[in-house]
Design a protein around this nucleic acid. Sequence first.
DNA 1: CGATGTGAACAACTTCACAGCG
DNA 2: CGCTGTGAAGTTGTTCACATCG
Lengths: 218, 218
Amino acid sequence: MNKSEVPDEVINRLYIYARCLEGFREEGKKSFSSDDIADRLNIKSTLVRKDFSYIGTMGKRGVGYDTEEVLKEVNQIAFPIKERKVALIGVGKLGSALLNFYGFKTQGFKIALAFDKDRRKIGSEIRGIKIDDINNFKKRVKKEGIKIAIIAVPSEEVVNVIKEIKNSCIEAVLNFTPSYLSSLNNCSNDFIIRNIDLSSELARLSYYLSEKESTKRN
Amino acid sequence: MNKSEVPDEVINRLYIYARCLEGFREEGKKSFSSDDIADRLNIKSTLVRKDFSYIGTMGKRGVGYDTEEVLKEVNQIAFPIKERKVALIGVGKLGSALLNFYGFKTQGFKIALAFDKDRRKIGSEIRGIKIDDINNFKKRVKKEGIKIAIIAVPSEEVVNVIKEIKNSCIEAVLNFTPSYLSSLNNCSNDFIIRNIDLSSELARLSYYLSEKESTKRN
DNA sequence: CGATGTGAACAACTTCACAGCG
DNA sequence: CGCTGTGAAGTTGTTCACATCG
């Protein structure tokens, strides 16, 4: 029953399965086979079945799986908490977009606090969230009991932001800065970190394009 | 010499190495050992050395690696083309943020075209890019020889966008929609796709937080 | 019969152990 | 002597083959 026994790769796919099942639901598809889902996601159906077996999902032999049932099961693991509050650091273009991002809300996340160091932004309000001085970060985050922070500042600022986060009650970080954070700066408590490097994502596409082009030539 | 021989996982880390080496450069660190880089990234130094061996990078035994030399080598593979033009579909909050995103430029990417279906946006200009009607997508993308598209539309629109992309000259897609695209819709030519599901990223953090919390209790 | 569930085989990736060289 | 480079061992993840059961 311990979640730790579920391999990481399976957890990663859970989020993909969830999206796919939501799709099935919208299409009014009440049940599905492992082949149905495998075809959509371009993976092998045995992988789907093995993944489902890790999370204890049961299908009916000869029939398949019940969409709602599996979706419920998957969501229970992938989205374990109904609502989590999150703090945003950096309210530039990207930060504002995230503040306005509807998808977070539907998934049970709420950006409850937003911080910046820019005087002109501090005090203004977006979507009912008043932008606060980054200097108040530690205090306010603690008061709200927030454990997740999103970093959306320019690269130069990331060093200062890390300092701020390090001795706060933050335990997990979603980092949009190109600096790869790894648990960085030999910190006592180890952070859970996801790095999203937008230019690298494009570059990756470009890499595979180039590869494709060069293999075509040969 | 064929890039295809480099494992995917190594390619993924190349972008991380690149960022790390840029850091070394900024700090004036002219050379480094595999331990230096491994410590920062929280990985094993033997992995670094093995990775470097795939891309043919040579260090000096007893000394280490030359920062500039390796950075050049890594960039050559990870960022194979000096400049790539990209098309953006969907100029909402996120799309606008991407249009304004400075990181793309520094990495050699240029959002050359931007599309939307909203009458009120079409014709207006952001950063010198005039927003065009999505109906002109195929034509304009072809004219510019663009192969990469970024999808930043609301979920409901993704189906239409896919249709548009499918019979265009686009070959690679960066998808910010929560719908997982996989090469989707049994298309003749197979696409290179990266999916960035922002809420799932947060959810993943939340999952590991919950896991941490529950193991602490036991 | 048709689809699931799973041990066993296989493949990919990481780490170890240590030889090699500046 | 210190740090790299690499075959071999170990680990993790995927696929196969097939028994199982509604």
